[in-house]
């Protein structure tokens, strides 16, 4: 049985190598967009705002999906005021109801806010829906 020591060496060498293995299957970093709908109403010359948390750097998209009555409104993205009284805007556009993102801004992780406001066209009161996609 002159082969026994060699076989023993071979088997144990394989076991030794396997025992110290630190190889792990890499898990790809993943991030997925979240979407929520901000629905509210305000009177002539008014506005409504809401904050949200962006968990990772990515594009925030805003889409005005409904307005009743059907008037153009201002929609914007910004930073919440520390006293909770509203939203200081970074970017904004004036839009009618549409079906694709009407304002997109790349944002760092953090708490940001959206604001919908009258641009002088709201007769008495408007009810709206704003889709917000973010990461």
């Amino acid at each position: 049985m002159t082969h026994t020591p060699r076989l023993f060496f071979g088997v144990l060498a394989v076991l030794a190598a396997a025992g110290c293995s630190t190889t792990a299957s890499p898990t790809a970093a993943s991030s997925s967009a979240a979407t929520f709908t901000f629905t509210s109403s305000f009177t002539a010359n008014g506005s409504a705002s809401r904050s949200f948390e962006q968990l990772t750097t990515g594009v925030v998209g805003l889409t005005l999906t409904a307005a009743s009555p059907d008037v153009r409104l201002g929609i914007g993205l910004g930073i919440p005021r520390p006293d909770g009284s509203g939203c200081n805007l970074t970017r904004a556009v004036e839009v009618a109801v549409g079906g694709a993102p009407q304002l997109t801004v790349t944002a760092d992780p953090g708490v940001w806010c959206v604001r919908v406001y009258d641009i002088g066209l709201v007769p008495e009161r408007v009810t709206f829906a704003l889709d917000v996609s973010h990461f």
Binding site: P5, F8, L12, A13, A16, G19, C20
Partner: peptide, 19 residues
């Protein structure tokens, strides 16, 4: 025996491998 000697040596190596 050669077989026992080999076993002792390799077990020592295995034990030391992660030391």
């Amino acid at each position: 025996s050669a077989t026992r000697l080999a076993a002792v040596m390799v077990c020592t190596l295995v034990a030391a491998a992660c030391g």
